[in-house]
Every structure is written in C-alpha cells, then in structure tokens.
Nucleic acid binder design. Structure first.
Lengths: 334, 334
DNA sequence: AAGGATTTGGCAAACGTTTGCCAATTTCTT
DNA sequence: AAGAAATTGGCAAACGTTTGCCAAATCCTT
C-alpha cells in the first residue's frame, strides 16, 4: 500500500542504498542521480516509514512535555511557544499530564508513559526528588523548566525567581503600600515558591516592613486565591498590596477584593507572576512579572537538541529574562 | 542495552512467541507459564520496543490533536479532558498546532506532520474543505470536533450550536434587554459561526427584535472583542445586551464596557460561549453556554477507537449536551 | 598516459517485534 | 482406555529502514 524505499529504488533504477542516501546524506550522491531519485520520490509520494527508521536509528522524533495540568494557562502558553521550536528540528510535542502525581511523573521518566518512548523530555516536575531526576537524566536527555532545584547535573532553564519577586515587591513598596501580603507560600522548602518568597522577604526587609505579617499558604489556583484573599480581608488590618506567586492566584485574589467592593488599585494593589493572557484583559488589568517565554522555549529546546545530539557535559543552568509589566491593578495610588 | 523479548524468552526458558503471547494475548498461554514469564518481564523491566511493534502492526499508539492554537483556553481545556480518555486506551496525545493555516491542517491529514504518523486524528479544522476531510477520512480514522459541517461521511461530535445560541439569546431577551448585539459573525457561511448566528437570529425574530441591528464581524479573540465592542458603544444607541460567540470575545467585550464605566449587568449584559475557567472568575463573572466537555472528550475518543478498531460505517454525528450558566454578567436587571 | 585518490552505489545484515503454520501436549468424551 | 478436541508453544518470515563493507567508476596529478 504505502510507497517504500524499494519501490522508489526500482522505479529510479538505483539501489535502495542510494535512495536512502538521497534522503539522509544528499552530499554523498551525485547531483544528477540525486535529482532523478528526488523526482521519483516526489512523484510516488514516498515518505520514509517512521517505525522502520526509528527501529534502526533508535530515534522517535518525539519529545515529552511533562506538566501537571495542560489547562493551566502558563503551560499551554509555553506549549504553544515550544511547538514551533520543536517543529523546526523535526521534533513533535507529546503532552504528558501528570496531575501533579509523583508516581506518574516518575513513570514518564522511566521509558515513557504508555507505549511511546521519547527522544527527550521537557519536564515541569513538582514532586520529584533530586535523585529521581539525576537518575533519569543519566539515561535520557532531559531539560528542566522552572525554578525547582534538582541538583547540578541536569540542564535547566528558568527565570531568577528571587530577583523577580524582589522587583515585584519593590514596585508595590514604591507605589506607597505598606501592608503588603504575599500569596503563594507552600510547604516545600525549596524551588519556585521558596525563591519567590525569598525575593519578597528581602524586598520587605530592605524597606523595613514585616514580611510575615500576611504570608499565607495556598495552592496555585484561582479558587485558592479567592479564598485566602477573603480570609485576609476579614482581618482588622487588611493588606493594601498583594504579591501573588502566580497570575491565577492573583486573579482569584482580585476577585475577592472586588466582591467586597474595594477599589483596585486605590485601596488595594495586586501584582502577579507569569503574564498569562487573562491578566492583560482582567478588569482591572493585572500587573505581573512576565518571564520571557519565547526565550525559555528557545533555549530549552536548543539544550535538549544538544543532549540528543550527544552532548554529555555537566548540567547547565540558564537564566531566562523577565520584565515587570505594570498595569492597572497596581498603578500608583494618587 | 535495552531488554528485548528475546532476553526475556531466554531467561524464562520459553520461546519468543510465548513472550509475545503473554504480552498481547494472555488468554492463549497457560496460567502458570504466564505467571513465570510475567515475573521475568517485571524483573528485567522489559518494555516492548514501540518501533518494532509499530513496524509490524502498523500501529503507533499516537493520536494527533489538531488545533489552531493550543493557548486558546477552550482547546487546552479539551486537551486536558482528552488525555485521560486516551490514556485509558493506551493512546498518547500529540498536539499539532496549525495556527489556522489551511496548508498545515492539510499536511497533518496527509501522512503526519513531520516524522510521526498517527493511528487517528481529532480534528478542529477551520479552513479545510469538505473534500479535504472526506479524502482524509477515507484513509485514516478521523473524528471531527466542533460544529463545522464537513459532509456526512465523517464522524463528528459537537453541541447543537443553533439551539445553544437560541437559549443564550432568549435568556438575554427574558432578562429585559431589547437592544441585543451578536458578536462573532465571520465571513464563512457555514459551520460554528453560522449556527450560532442562526440561533441568535431565530430567538430575536421570535421576540420581534431586529437581529441585524448590531451584528458585527470579528475574530475569536479578546482583542477583537474589545475593539468591536468599543465600536458598538460609540453608536448613539448602544446595545444593552451582547451575545458573544465565544468567551474570549465576551471577556474582551466586557472590558470595553468596563473601560467606559458602564455597570454590568445593570446597563449592559453579556453572555458568552464555551465556559472557560476565566469566565467563572471574571469581574463580573461571565454567563455562558457550557458545552459538556467531558462528554465531548469521551465520545470522540470512543468513536475514534472504534474507527481504529476497524469500524467503517457511515459518519456519525453526535450531539453533546450543553447548559446555560447564568452568572453575574447577565443577572436580571432589577 | 598511467597510477593514485576520490566519489558513487550495490549487497546484505540488523533493528525487535508479531504472527501463520504446525507439532506436541494435555484434556475431554464416549 | 482410546480416540477426538482443545490448548500450548516453537520456528521463521516479514515489517521498511539504515549502514558497514567493498567494488566499480570517475577524476585528478604528475
């Protein structure tokens, strides 16, 4: 049914070897033979069978993109930027959704989830240990996305969470807020959360403010932001500025303030983290830290491609840029 | 390096055939042999090589999910529901982003985008002709998602756009609005847009209102909703109710009203379509038509699996349910 | 013009599975 | 207890590619 390399060879009057050369090592074949074979390929619509090729070369062309949930805007944004980068290298994105489940995260690292195996993995892990990762990185190409710290031997690209949080918090302080809350602390002592917290604390202390007055522990969802903001606003001395560790949280939190009729940013200001599209159109629009997603996508794919091509040096830790985008939710109170 | 079926056979003291049987046709092998072989498989960590298998069976276990952009929340929501359904059948989701490009949509249908080929395709096409689809459906399993009409020979699952739009519009009418706009008309005469438009028109005419007074032509984005809403509000007789053909549009449009200081829903009400998560947390929260995404995911994967298993009957057109969710943006004006 | 260097292309093995065909073994029937 | 029926498992071919090893052909150098 399908056209094979053999069919092409027969029609073109060359050997299979030559057909393969035309496809894979065009330099190794004379220009007029090449042209003739290529013509036959086009005419017959020959496409190399990926399985036969994969069987032989041990390459699949598949990259796993491992995320907790795909409908978290930050991850779908990232996926969107990743796809063209991968495409350019003839790689295909396979989404693996772990639901934040550690065993599922681990399963992906071991030989692929169900039936496919991957040339490489782009990992947004949440619940793995450094050991898990190191072991997996020894076996297959992996690039880590995000700030979680998993040891020095694996490639990683992330923004500097400490500095970004510092900038965001400083912005709130400079706009005249004094009772500033941080929303997003979690139980883990390292990683994303810890960095953002550290940056927040540093900025607050530098300004002589108490960083722990309002610190609250939450999930990274809108629902959770809504609930814990309500709890804070129930206090006799509610905050007048809130730095949320991601935009989802911030959108939920803003809604809590809105439900109570507070005016934003006059009575209370908000800054988020991630710059998802919703934030731009929120009412009021949300100030946020905008990581350079395009750069993250580009560099992570580059590094992964290098690993796939055989690079086996030590892990590289790349910093992606970020930018504080000031919008309505934290416009200076006049 | 990797463990092969042969290694397993050798260790277990059986033939390769038996190993294969244990993996694929467990009924065909004696229970105590099976147990023994299975133990060896587990111990050695044997995983069938997907390429060898694919080469032999012509199955990949890969399903292409073809969408215009993955960061459109409706599609990432859907992908999220799809993944567990596919997982259950040992299928893996591959995201193919077409950027609404017709040639790219077509390319996916022909033998796979770059290097992978798929067992089946879940297609959200925008710019293909019925001919394209029919031709592709003859070659490989395809299920269409969404209301675009591509002829009777291909499986499809979608909500009844006409009825849903009718319900949404009627809701606006019953809440006392009379100057009702529809946002989302496009140049194409068939498909999603046409259905929603038809439902809107029917509801308006039934109530004796002019459906075409405010009808505006737009893209399905927030930006576009924002702009065209502003244009409408510039008119001397601005609308007091708006039915938007999707939530993104509605969120943009609401923001336009908000920028002008209009109070929602007192002065102007909004209803969207899709029920993306943002809508629930918008300020005010957005009323919308909520398609039963879980059902869409379930049925489309079911039908695709049937096609893959060899079903070759005529195309089936399945209706997924929907629900009008009334939120703050269209709470009845008192 | 002859020898050497380079290019070109053929042959065939290998990748790891599934599966048709059979033979051997076990179980059931009468 | 003997023959028929069912179950189990072995052998080996096939899937479509890539690639090491060579031989043939072409080109250059002196």
């Amino acid at each position: 049914m399908a056209v094979t390399a053999r069919d092409v060879a027969k029609v073109a009057g060359v050997s299979q070897r030559t057909v393969s050369n035309v496809v894979n090592l065009p330099d190794r074949v004379g220009s007029e033979t090449r042209k003739r074979v290529q013509a036959v390929i086009d005419e017959l619509g020959y496409r190399p069978n990926p399985h036969a090729r994969g069987l032989r070369t041990r390459r699949t062309g598949l990259i796993a993109f491992v995320v907790p949930e795909l409908d978290i805007p930050y991850f779908s944004d990232l996926a969107r930027s990743l796809i063209p980068e991968l495409d350019q290298r003839s790689l295909t994105l396979v989404v693996d959704q772990t639901s934040g489940d550690a065993s599922r995260e681990r399963a992906v690292l071991r030989g692929g989830s169900v039936s496919a195996t991957f040339d490489g993995v782009l990992l947004n892990a949440l619940n793995l240990t450094a050991g898990d990762i190191e072991a997996a990185a020894a076996t297959q190409p992996i690039v880590l996305l995000g700030e979680e710290d998993y040891g020095p031997s694996v490639d990683q690209v992330a923004v500097d969470g400490v500095e970004a949080a510092f900038v965001a918090t400083t912005h709130l302080i400079e706009s005249g807020r004094t009772r500033i809350a941080a929303l997003g602390r979690q139980s883990r002592e390292a990683g994303t959360t810890a960095q953002r917290e550290a940056g927040f604390v540093a900025a607050m202390e530098q300004a002589g403010l108490d960083p722990f007055r309002y610190m609250s522990r939450v999930e990274y969802t809108r629902e959770s932001g809504l609930r814990s903001m309500h709890a804070m606003l129930d206090r006799p001395d509610p905050p007048d500025g809130v730095f949320c560790f991601n935009d989802l949280l911030a959108l939920g939190a803003m809604r809590a303030a809105w439900e109570r009729g507070l005016s934003i940013p006059q009575q209370i200001a908000f800054v988020g983290f991630d710059d998802i599209e919703d934030s731009r159109y929120a009412m009021p629009s949300l100030s946020t830290i905008a990581p350079d997603k395009a750069a993250i996508a580009r560099r992570s794919v580059e590094m992964l491609a290098e690993r796939i091509a055989g690079y086996t040096g030590p892990g590289r830790r790349e910093r992606a840029g970020f930018e504080l985008v000031v919008r309505e939710s934290s416009a200076p109170a006049r």
